[in-house]
Amino acid sequence: MNKLFATFLSLAFLTLPTYGIEMAPIPEVEAIETEEMVTEEVKDLPYNFESTYKVPIKLGIITPITTKGETLYEGQVLQFKVLQDTYCKRKTFLKKGTIINGRIETLISTGMNGFPAEIIISNFEIPGAKPSQLVDTYTKKGQNRCYIVYPIKWALTIIPFVGSLTNLIKGGHAKIKAKDEIVIYYYPEWK
């Protein structure tokens, strides 16, 4: 028994440190490599979001739009005007009334169960600002009728099939009116 115990102990002493030695350098090497990689990547990054200084740009659409009637399409260019003078570091950046183009990115049509339509606009072309300096995604939704639909559906579940009729209720169309204020942000210190 003693022999067995001694063998086990000696084997454990012989093998375990070997694993330890084998395993130990791996994380070190990886850590150095990762550090170098990160440093390299940071140098080449096309963006730097360090600055928190932002300028809000208030826009209004020139021609009101709606998802009703399938007149809109994805990629469509829309015109907006600047609603008020915009200043960046005490200098005028955009004058009131300046016309700016934006693009419809995605259209979501209304759906059953009260799902609202949605218009996602982005890619605003602001003179003097690079696209990478803008946080410019604007989303407008129609009326979300699920707040009405789901309670009715659940209340009617007791009568077979009747609850399913609420599936036919569609959500509201998305509209952007002339008086709607669209705010996008310009980060002048970003790359």
Binding site: E74, E105, T106, I108, S109, G111, M112, N113, F115, S122, N144, C146, Y147
Partner: peptide, 23 residues
């Protein structure tokens, strides 16, 4: 609420996700 709608109306949002992925 929106999460529940995406989960329930996954057919519609499947297309939306595909399109947004392209962008």
């Amino acid at each position: 609420i929106d999460s529940a709608q995406v989960a329930l109306g996954s057919k519609k949002f499947e297309t939306v996700s595909d399109k947004r992925a392209v962008d």
